[in-house]
């Protein structure tokens, strides 16, 4: 149950439903491989972008001879360079994403990490399908490299296999969420600026302020996928009633309490503050924020992010 089966990740229907979705970057940084995203570099692309005066050493094939004939001066025609968008997927593998939660009628719900991995797989498939490079960097209290950035639609099966092997760490320390440290380590990898997709419940013991602060320091474009459940904001009154001993899945800390209406109201207020903190950050940073209900189909929710089938990074 901890890991996700390969068949669940590489489901033909699941992959088919992603074909109409595209990631579109404004300008990808210079230094990438030739691909489909517009980059800041000028080069030998197809789409005209600008003129500039000729200087010695320039490629004569780029001289616009029509201008030279009319004006008697030599200008070069500049074309957009099409490069790839680096997409860095950071799925959350902390214990909170793998905790078994009870649903209606005490049925056991799937871990929210599974939805996160399916989301990661979907984004990887979209990016690989348009020749962008994709890397997978799962994290909990630290980040590690599961798949180095690579491109090519043919890599999809490899991605699925590797994602299906991802699961929670046995080490108790590694099961805690530390987004700040993970981002710091990720930043230290000095990767080419791209789209950083953080897929997490963002339940960091350090608090949402610390999380936002760490996210604000990253130089990548951000897409935040928040793994949520319906019971996160308003706990099920049947499940969460009476005298409870709540055990934190990550830290193991226990909290004895008696559920009352007032306590539930305080809880909802606290959760709302957490959510508004994340939303405010996304608004300030102008980054995407998708609240992915882990119990609903992933692609349908992901499609809401892609207006007209495109998500503008």
């Amino acid at each position: 149950m901890a890991t996700l089966a390969f068949e669940e990740l590489f489901d033909p229907h699941f992959m088919e439903s992603l074909h109409r979705l595209r990631l579109v970057a404004g300008r990808v940084p210079i230094g990438g491989r030739f691909a489909e995203q517009r980059s800041k570099a000028m080069g030998h692309g197809i789409e005209f972008r600008d003129f500039r005066p000729y200087s010695p050493g320039d490629d004569l094939r780029a001289v616009d001879w029509n201008i030279y004939r009319r004006l008697g001066r030599v200008f070069l025609r500049l074309f957009e360079e099409m490069e790839d968008l680096p997409v860095y997927l950071m799925p959350d593998l902390s214990a909170s994403a793998y905790v078994s939660e009870a649903g209606p009628s005490n049925s056991e719900l799937t871990p929210r990490a599974h939805a996160g991995l399916r989301c990661a797989m979907a984004l990887a498939a979209i990016a690989l399908g348009q020749h962008d490079s994709v890397g997978v960097f799962p994290f909990s209290n630290d980040v590690r490299v599961a798949i180095r950035p690579q491109s090519g639609a043919g890599r999809l099966v490899t991605f699925a296999k590797i994602l299906s092997t991802l699961g929670p760490d046995d080490d108790s320390d590694s099961r805690q969420t530390d987004i700040a440290q993970s981002l710091q380590k990720f930043g230290a990898m000095n990767l080419r600026a791209g789209l950083l997709v953080m897929i997490s419940d963002f339940f960091d013991p350090a608090g949402i302020e610390a999380v936002c602060k760490a996210l604000g320091r990253t130089r990548h474009q951000l897409l935040l996928v928040q793994l949520v459940r319906k019971g996160d904001r308003t706990p099920d009154p049947v499940q969460m009633s009476g005298d409870l001993r709540l055990v934190d899945a990550e830290t193991g800390d226990a909290q004895n309490l008696s559920i009352t209406k007032e306590l539930l109201e305080r809880y909802t207020e606290s959760y709302d503050a957490f959510e508004s903190g994340l939303t405010d950050f996304a608004t300030r940073r102008k980054c995407g924020l998708l609240q992915l209900d882990v119990d609903d189909p992933v692609v349908d929710q992901l499609a809401t992010l892609f207006e007209g089938g495109r998500y503008q990074v």
């Binding site: 939660e101 013991p205 409870l244 001993r245 055990v247 004895n256």
Partner: peptide, 24 residues
Amino acid sequence: VRHREVIVPTTIFWKQAMDESMAR
């Protein structure tokens, strides 16, 4: 009383709620 044990993804919101409730 004997509390019923429930494992939750996080207790940070419950702690905040408890602190707030105790204060009020």
